[in-house]
Simulated assay, not measured.
Amino acid sequence: MTSSPPSLSHDANDLAAQRAAIVRQYFRMVDAGDPGLLDLYTDDVELFFPKFGHGHGKEDMVEFARRLWTDLGSIGHDIDGLDIMVCGDRVIVEGREWGTLADGTAWPDGTVSTGRFCNVFTFRGTRISSVHIYADPDIASAHTEKIQQLHRAS
């Protein structure tokens, strides 16, 4: 199912609301593995994700998803609980995510890995021209050496 973002509004408040709605749609589509997600992006979309680095264009978005889903079995986001802040052409989102790895391991572990993330979207009209995803790619807390070095038990 391919869905397009709403048409561009000339009112700044309407545009901010449209962009927030597009971000919610983005997370629903990510959770569903909907390839129509690409329709939300500009052709020259920019991506940043830790350990992946920077990507440019829809082809890199597809490659990122392919690499990410190599280890993922499922992913879900607390869409109703997203904290969405719109500031001009930027939409900053803090939230929680969870899922399973391909081997069935559930994440986050609730101790070290809590499933918190922050995404920064940049828009051109009603299309996403950039998404920077700030999340710990060690979703299953498997990087034990770094955890032992940094984790502060409550």
Rank of each mutant, 00 (worst) to 15 (best):
T2Q: 15
S3Y: 06
P5R: 03
P6R: 11
P6G: 11
D11V: 08
N13E: 15
V23L: 08
V23S: 02
V23F: 01
R24T: 05
Q25A: 12
F27Q: 00
F27W: 04
V30Y: 05
P35C: 01
L37Q: 01
L38K: 10
D39K: 04
D44F: 04
E46P: 07
L47K: 02
H54A: 13
H54E: 11
H54K: 14
H54N: 12
G55P: 02
H56E: 11
K58V: 03
K58E: 03
E59T: 14
D60K: 09
E63W: 09
R67P: 02
T70K: 08
L72H: 01
I75C: 06
I75D: 00
D80A: 12
I84N: 00
M85N: 08
V86N: 00
E94I: 10
R96P: 02
R96V: 08
W98R: 09
L101Q: 03
D103C: 10
D103F: 05
T105S: 10
A106E: 15
W107A: 07
P108L: 07
T111Q: 14
S113Y: 05
S113E: 06
S113G: 10
T114P: 00
G115D: 01
R116P: 03
F117Q: 07
F123L: 11
F123G: 08
G125W: 13
T126Q: 11
T126R: 08
R127I: 09
R127M: 12
I128A: 08
S129F: 08
H132Q: 10
D136W: 11
D138L: 02
D138W: 00
I139H: 14
S141A: 15
T144H: 15
K146V: 15
Q148K: 15
Q148E: 15
